[in-house]
Design a binder for these strands. Sequence first.
RNA 1: GCGCUCGUAGCUCAGUUGGAUAGAGCGUCUGACUACGAAUCAGAAGGUCGCAGGUUCGAGUCCUGCCGAGCGCGCCA
Length: 545
Amino acid sequence: MSFEERLSACLRETIREAYGIELDGVHVERPNDAGHGDLATNLALANAKVFKRNPREVAETVAGALRAPFVERAEVAGPGFINFWFSPEALHEELGALLERGELYGRREVSGEPVLLEYVSANPTGPMHVAHGRHAAYGDSLALILEASGRAVWREYYFNDGGNQIRLLAESVAVRYAELLDAEWPVSDPDALYRGSYVAEIARELAREHGGRYLEPGSEEALGEIGEFSKERCMADIKETLARARVRFDRYFNEKSLYDSGAVGEVVEELKSRGHAYEQEGALWLASSEFGDDKDRVLVKGDGSYTYMAPDLAYHRDKWQRGFGTAVDVLGADHAGYPPRIRAGLVALGVPEDFLDVELVRLVKLFREGEQVKVSKRAGTFVTFDELIDEVGEDVARYFYVRSSHRNEMNFDLDLAIEQSDENPVFYVQYAHARIASIFRRAGVEPGSVKSAPPGDIAPEERALLLELLDFPRIVANAAAKREVHPVPTYLETLATRFHQFYTVHRVLVDDAAVQERRLALSAATKNVLAIGLDLLGVEAPEKM
RNA sequence: GCGCUCGUAGCUCAGUUGGAUAGAGCGUCUGACUACGAAUCAGAAGGUCGCAGGUUCGAGUCCUGCCGAGCGCGCCA
């Protein structure tokens, strides 16, 4: 149990004894100002109405009556805050416990129902671009953070290969393919075609591998084959990029399999039989407005084909049937209208309303030389995730993406990212790790072998560093609960700062054996937490830089 | 028009149930390497937290209105 939790419990106990009052919870927090103690509480102020007494008087009473073995000193300050300082013995005990936990520090035992996390889910109609990169970095780190917080996570990538996107890709490739072979492929709408250079590349590969075998302009069958080929190429390319960015998935789920298994048809029939679908103007509608959506949605179009809603509902029902307790979809903010309608459909199918959670990731705005770059896949004016990694490297790319909240729009200045990539904050954090590794090399000690620290007075810089280290489990738990990744980089930068400050003032390798042992313990703990934290972000923790 | 989200330093961003003097990085300026890595540290400058009200002992945080930006409101996904 953390100091926060223990102190909070002690305070409730003290208040129960002193006033006979049972408070629901006592809020304890780390003050911004080190002069305000290691922990502080505003309980006397926050509960002034309950106590019906002057907050300062309550604070004095509580501070005087508190019995908490790890607290050395409690002081009343300001209008009624109580500030607490830990005893050196308790701090050393915590440091020892941290070292003992090793790489499991900050992790909770896995329990509860597994969560299915779906992210990226880019359709295989081209390479991943920088916005997909943000989804990949956020999703993968979120999965790691959820796992650290004790949730079992299954990662899934869903892609549409049943609709007309693939057909459009096929036509785009077919036109180029025909050109290569001095022929012409007729298309209904030339302006709708994809134009990126990858289209021509796929066409070249098609010609190289299969020659003129599919050169049957206008043939639907040939187009289907070209679509298959193109889709496979794009998917392979996407998987390669994901692997490069250290983004993992347990399963790639394709839309087509839902048609093949009959799941789509089943869902539509079930909605009909449950009385939540009706025919109108030649189409079949889902009565989603009965379940909180703004309006009803079309499930089956007038021409008999399904809208995306049908397979999507089949997919999400499949998630539910597979026994997951929660499904979290990571989607682009331009899909904001999606959650209410898909949730409505699920409720209509008898799936609990809170089964599906959605995290919307905001747009990535690209800038080049101060000017915004309009991204268009069809026009081919986009920057790929691969190109970004080429420029700045995997670590910078991943760190940069998750450093800011996914709920906010991100301005990505390419020139700045490239120019400043050697001053990126990720190196600041990595440097702290490498610096510590260097100390241990010099000392001839294995960091992992340090399991305890001798007690003794500690300097303010050491205390500040240690308190920061002890805050890590709370950071992970909060990040998981709020499904945010960015608190982790923020924390790591603060931790790195605490270490650099400590390092500047105190020498680790000194003659006094007890002092050296304690500082090595502190350094080993810092190295451990930095490595764990960076790992949650998919970033390397280097021994040397 | 209706709905949702957002607005914090020149730039990119943090800010823990509402708490004490709103913090980092980059950029600018000034210092610090003859013992463990200067990819570092110390300091300075830089803010009406979009604007105006309200609730509260206390508001960047909660409520209302306004201004500005983005997204949604398809038989597209």
